[in-house]
Amino acid sequence: MLVRDYMTRHPFMAEPSMSIVEAQRLMGENNIRHLPVVGEGKRLLGLVTRNTLLVDPRRLGSLDVWEIARYLSGLTVKDVMIKARDVITIHPDATIEDAARVMVERKVGCLPVLEDGVVVGILTDADMLAHLMQMMAAGTPAVRVTVRMPDVRGELAKLVGAIAAQGWGILALGGAPAPREPGKWDAVVKIRYVTKDQVAAALSGVEGQQIVDIREC
């Protein structure tokens, strides 16, 4: 699972000479929040977001409405963009989990994707959520069960073995450290073509493991 598989290819982009009024219109009409700013050969020069396009009222001072209109119409993307040296980017061959880590650690909502300095895509927080939906088969009818187990080798194999023993297939599987329980791990499994009662009966007997949530979704 690499960035190139989940990024938005051929994203909307802006030239530095584009007015901020035009940039706002482009973003509003296409429901996007980030615009890479590129120069010749689609090389990254900067980034504008909805926030960077907001003009600080203090810059307008005591201007009247006509002066404000003239001032805003004269502003370009180059005047407000985040310069390329300050933009956090990522390579298309980076893993999706590395991209998520960078976005969380750097507190950014998007990562322009660069290959040899050229913008080839953009990865946004919305793309990451869409990836999570795919991983967990959101929207596909199934039984979703969360099983808490000791965080030791072999525990996940026990759970998968119990499911396989019933002849069931796994639609989706994920896991994370159990909240507020050090040394425990929560595995989330989605299984199709079964009932909640069948899953509960099959997995409640797995030694050392506990069903903490089960639902049909």
Rank of each mutant, 00 (worst) to 15 (best):
D5Q: 13
Y6A: 14
F12V: 06
M13T: 12
S19F: 01
I20C: 05
M27A: 13
G28S: 09
N31W: 00
I32V: 11
R33A: 14
P36D: 05
E40S: 15
E40Q: 15
L45W: 01
V48D: 03
V48K: 10
R50G: 15
P57M: 09
D64M: 07
W66E: 15
R70I: 03
I90G: 00
I90Y: 04
D93G: 02
D98P: 04
A99T: 03
A100L: 12
M103R: 10
V104M: 08
L111T: 08
P112C: 07
P112K: 10
V113F: 05
V113K: 11
L114H: 11
D116T: 11
V119T: 03
V120L: 05
I122H: 06
A130C: 01
M133D: 14
M133H: 13
Q134V: 14
M136L: 14
A138N: 09
P141H: 06
M149C: 07
V152L: 07
V160G: 02
A165Q: 12
Q166G: 06
L171S: 03
L171F: 00
G174L: 05
P177I: 12
E181A: 14
V189I: 11
R192M: 08
T195I: 13
A200Y: 09
L203A: 09
V206S: 12
E207L: 10
E207A: 15
E207H: 06
G208M: 00
I214L: 14
